[in-house]
Amino acid sequence: MSLLSLRQMKTDIGQYSVLHDVTFDVPEGGVFVLLGRNGAGKTTTLRSIMGLWQPSPGSVLFRGEDITALHTAQIARKGIAYVPENMGIFGTLTVDENLVLATANGRFDPARLKRIHALFPALEKFRDKQAWSLSGGQKQMLSVARAIIEPRDLILIDEPTKGLAPSIVAAMGEAFREISADTTILLVEQNYNFARSLGRDMAVIDDGRVAHTGSMESFAADKALQDRLLSLSV
């Protein structure tokens, strides 16, 4: 059984139909990459999974359970974390306050905190600093750290490398590789090389529809398909 299944999901925002019959499965384990051009509907797909926009009709199944009509908070409590494109950092809260807010009972699990500090040392150094004062890369680290401060089954990550320096992107890639060892990641990414280096399975969304699904390996080998779906020359 797939960890997450989207079935004929249609999402309207105001008077615009953004997603049409989106259907794909995310298997458990590793990194599943969702690719597509700007405005194709990738972010809308993640937000619809999280219940931030309500798909209708269509359904979202998580471990076989229909979570389509659940409130965002209930979806999160099922074990799905969300790292939005804008990072969703609470700027006036300190780094530690941002993290403790994402814990289930308001207390850190020392082992998980240690793991986070090992993955992102800057978060240990600046733990009492207000988050607005962090650099863009540090904010992205905090956003990802918040998603793994508790055990999760699935993390939805929206364009984590946008606007980051190459060295930070490389560090983020390493972190995702380690996190994906025990947690499934659904990654929306524009940086094709970054996505290719991490992804095992993938889907491409084009104009609100799923245009392709398969393994990242076979997609990476098919240049004509890449050019057609992403207009890339890599």
């Binding site: 908070a73 409590r77 609470f90 006036t92 807010l101």
Partner: peptide, 24 residues
């Protein structure tokens, strides 16, 4: 307090607080 933390976070970004599992 934790409830105060939630209120302060909610003032900044309501959606994100919900995505962390809280009923705003």
């Amino acid at each position: 307090t934790r409830i105060g933390l939630l209120i302060r976070a909610g003032v900044e970004d309501r959606e994100m607080v919900e995505a962390l599992g809280f009923r705003v």
